[in-house]
Write a protein that binds this DNA or RNA. Structure first.
Lengths: 158, 158
DNA sequence: GCTGATAGTCAGCAGTGCTGACGATCGATT
DNA sequence: AATCGATCGTCAGCACTGCTGACTATCAGC
């Protein structure tokens, strides 16, 4: 793609900036993680599984913000690489508990180092305090309530 | 989708934050622009065409950061809505000059107001100075040179 | 008049994310 | 215990994007 510098009309539009920042980061991420045989989404799955014990597929999907049908493929791929394993929950046999294998834990550890290094490079054009503020600002807009589906005032919906 | 609050392990990962910030903004954008019959990408096309005279499809695609094959469909859609028109360049008959129609200019004006209002709401959780810094920080990482394709030092490649 | 490069178009493919359906299982009710 | 509605995982199929590769028309240089 012929990638011009962002023209003035677009460089202050949030849509353009967020999209292209995300695309840029995705490329860097793919490059940084390639040696470990996983991509950024898979690494996030490993991280979530490592941080919580006994997560079912659906619970993990909820934390990751992906659809449960998407989670199937994600776990399939990681299981194929023997980084996680499925195990039916004895308490509720509808659930697949997904656990890191020892290899998965090790891979997570290595890849996390690479990811942090990649993010450091990505944020290099910013001062340390600006970088920290960027992260805080993003966290803030991401977790603030959406104006989206006309909010129901019916308490039963919560 | 069951959208949990971002779990701690993910809320400091740039990939997660940029992706979800972008998704959130996309939803808001679609909602805000729906009354005008266009989406965010189409609005960006109109804005770029308005800011530069006599752009060919390829030139506009370059400014937008989209592929030329994608640009075909984008212009098709806008032409179908009679917001832009194609016209062969007399100077170079390979080129399609894309111009705003008067209706396109008017639609752009209206939709821009809606977009700005939407962005204002989106950034509401941030203070004014934090919002401005977020935009500047994003612009900075987006336009900083990528580590990507092993940079050729051969001047002929430029 | 050739030749190589460029602009627009189209068909086809890959990645992603969704919907809708299904079987298995659960919890509650009767 | 038989039944009913809901939940979890799975899969097929669709839509949307964005790309590659091929093709035509056109250009610029020789």
């Amino acid at each position: 793609m012929t990638r011009d510098a962002p023209p003035e009309v677009l460089s202050s539009r949030l849509g353009y900036l967020l999209k292209h920042a995300y695309l840029r980061l995705s490329e860097e991420s793919a490059r940084a993680l390639a040696p470990y045989g996983i991509d950024g989404r898979e690494l996030a799955v490993l991280a979530v599984l490592d941080a919580h014990d006994e997560l079912s597929q659906l619970e993990a999907a909820g934390k990751l913000g992906v659809d449960r049908t998407t989670m199937v493929g994600l776990v399939d791929a990681l299981e194929g690489k023997e980084l996680v394993e499925r195990r039916r929950s004895p308490q509720d046999r509808r659930k697949n508990i997904v656990r890191l294998t020892p290899a998965g834990r090790e891979r997570l550890r290595e890849a996390e180092v690479a990811r942090q290094e990649m993010e450091r490079r990505f944020l290099a054009p910013l001062s340390g305090s600006d970088a920290a503020l960027l992260v805080r600002a993003l966290r803030s807009v991401v977790s603030s309530p959406s104006s989206a589906p006309p909010p129901s005032l019916n308490p039963r919906d919560q």
